[in-house]
Amino acid sequence: MMRWAERRPWVWSFLAAGLVWALTSASVGGQGAFASLAVALEFATFAVIVGLGQMLVITAGPGNIDLSIPGVMTLAAYLATGLAKGTDGGLAAGLAAGLAVGLAAGLFNLLLIQGLAIPPMVGTLAAGFIFQSMAIAYSRHSHAKPAPALVGFVNAHLLGLPLVTLVFVGVSALVAQMLRRTVFGRSLLAIGQNRRAARLAGLAVGATVGLVYVLAGLCSALAGILLAANSGGAALNMGSDYLLSSIAVVVLGGTAIAGGQAVPAGLWGAAALLDLIVTMLNVLHVGAGLRYVVTGLIIIAVLALARGRAP
């Protein structure tokens, strides 16, 4: 069992999520068990989208991280809703503007990291503040509602499960395949394990790491746009929860924090776990103070199990 699990680092987060879900369902006599899972998955989807970007960045090796996620999410969400002006006719322009924010943010992070040699942890944090300030400035003129078509999409269900969830399960599977069998993915995994060796093996180190930051920017933008549609509009604090949870889902999901190994499937288990814990503690009427203690302990337990072997 342990050896089987060692080759599948995502099992622990799924196991923990399943356990928490079962406990919650049992405590309410099985009532609404499936519905609570569907809700958890719907919220988990946004964490997974930013997690995918963060996972790729972390996989690029020690020191790589993207802390600009909340700023990019917020700015992209404001621009996308602002330009769409609550109409389906403006949706295309809104989406384009939102994704352009992600692209520009990725390139700006790159400029700081590769051009000015600023450590990613500081560079992306500073960039995030800039994007957040731009969002604040823009928010003074814009109170638009999201485009109805987009709202319809994020609220649609298929077979009882949210459509966005299903779409991004597919995207995660594509990312897994990309890591396994494309030049980009293979190069990324190599760079994360041993950057010097990757360079000497003739891999395009700079371009690969650059693409990773751009992809992360796009993921943050997409998450911001969809989250705004899901919650009836952009808000200035909409991204703040996602800074830590983007890192938490990556690490809980079994991705190597030192880089070189990525586990997209694990993001789902980890994101669902984080949401299901909140549900469980609500159902059990655990007080606010104790709630954080329990959440912390569960995270530590999963990590202790998953990190059985040396990092």
Partner: peptide, 21 residues
């Protein structure tokens, strides 16, 4: 250790990484 191997990988992936492109 420093300039050659990719420690998380198998022999196969370590062999082919130079010619993936």
């Amino acid at each position: 250790q420093n300039d050659g191997i990719f420690p998380l990988w198998s022999i196969g992936r370590n062999t082919t990484i130079g010619l993936i492109r």
